[in-house]
Amino acid sequence: MEAPIIRLIEKKDNTQIAAVIRSVLEDFNVPKVGTAYADKSLDCMFETYQKPKGVYFVVEENGKIIGGAGVAQLDNFDGNVCELQKMYFLPEARGRGVGAQMMEFCVAKAREFGFEKIYLETMEYMTHAQKLYKQAGFEYIPCAMGDTGHYSCPVHMIKKL
């Protein structure tokens, strides 16, 4: 069995990563509106990240996409802040250090792009994810920044880069 590899998303990954994200959101009973589930970009992730200061990585193991995450400018926000976006992993990817490794890739890219801070939104019951974010240096903030359209995500966190 090969070790999982983290690589840039390719057009051929669109269907698999969309299925991964929807599967994880369904597993956690995340609302289908006001969250990433409803994002139009879910079915065209490769195309969505073909823009300046935007990147999306996938985790591949034995030819199968088992997770992903990306960074891009925070929508509708006037400032040098990016957002950690669509970081989701199938159960077989969890508890193996893949999330921490993916976080390193994303934070490094955010720094390379010259962002000052990295922001994220999540659900209150995604406690394992929040633990990972805290270990990576994210801190809770009381309200949302920008307008991601994810009004059903009540937990907001930020990290200085």
Score class of each variant (00 low, 15 high):
residue 49 Y to D: 02
residue 52 P to F: 12
residue 39 D to T: 02
residue 7 R to D: 07
residue 20 V to F: 06
residue 68 G to W: 13
residue 59 V to I: 15
residue 94 R to M: 13
residue 95 G to Q: 11
residue 157 M to N: 04
residue 22 R to T: 02
residue 129 A to T: 06
residue 119 Y to H: 03
residue 121 E to F: 02
residue 135 Q to T: 08
residue 150 H to G: 03
residue 147 D to H: 06
residue 76 N to V: 11
residue 78 D to A: 15
residue 75 D to M: 11
residue 101 Q to A: 13
residue 64 K to M: 12
residue 125 Y to M: 06
residue 9 I to S: 04
residue 69 A to N: 10
residue 123 M to H: 06
residue 29 N to T: 13
residue 148 T to I: 07
residue 140 Y to Q: 00
residue 111 R to P: 03
residue 150 H to N: 13
residue 78 D to S: 15
residue 136 A to V: 04
residue 27 D to E: 15
residue 105 F to Y: 15
residue 104 E to S: 12
residue 45 M to E: 09
residue 39 D to W: 01
residue 10 E to Y: 08
residue 51 K to G: 09
residue 60 E to S: 12
residue 93 A to P: 13
residue 86 K to I: 03
residue 6 I to V: 15
residue 2 E to P: 14
residue 31 P to E: 14
residue 78 D to G: 11
residue 88 Y to E: 11
residue 42 L to M: 12
residue 150 H to V: 03
residue 4 P to C: 07
residue 17 I to Y: 01
residue 52 P to K: 10
residue 93 A to G: 15
residue 54 G to H: 00
residue 99 G to H: 08
residue 33 V to S: 14
residue 67 G to I: 10
residue 86 K to R: 15
residue 103 M to D: 08
residue 2 E to Q: 15
residue 107 V to W: 07
residue 129 A to Y: 03
residue 12 K to H: 12
residue 103 M to E: 06
residue 93 A to F: 10
residue 23 S to W: 04
residue 15 T to W: 01
residue 108 A to L: 06
residue 71 V to R: 03
residue 138 F to L: 04
residue 15 T to Q: 14
residue 44 C to Q: 11
residue 6 I to Q: 05
residue 93 A to W: 14
residue 72 A to L: 13
residue 81 V to I: 15
residue 69 A to Y: 09
residue 130 Q to V: 00
residue 35 T to D: 05
residue 131 K to Q: 05
residue 105 F to K: 14
residue 45 M to D: 03
residue 27 D to C: 11
residue 84 L to P: 11
residue 101 Q to W: 07
residue 58 V to N: 00
residue 157 M to Q: 07
residue 1 M to W: 05
residue 16 Q to E: 15
residue 55 V to Q: 12
residue 64 K to N: 10
residue 52 P to V: 10
residue 126 M to Q: 10
residue 128 H to I: 04
residue 45 M to I: 13
residue 12 K to P: 06
residue 140 Y to F: 02
residue 101 Q to R: 13
residue 50 Q to V: 01
residue 10 E to C: 00
residue 125 Y to C: 03
residue 146 G to E: 10
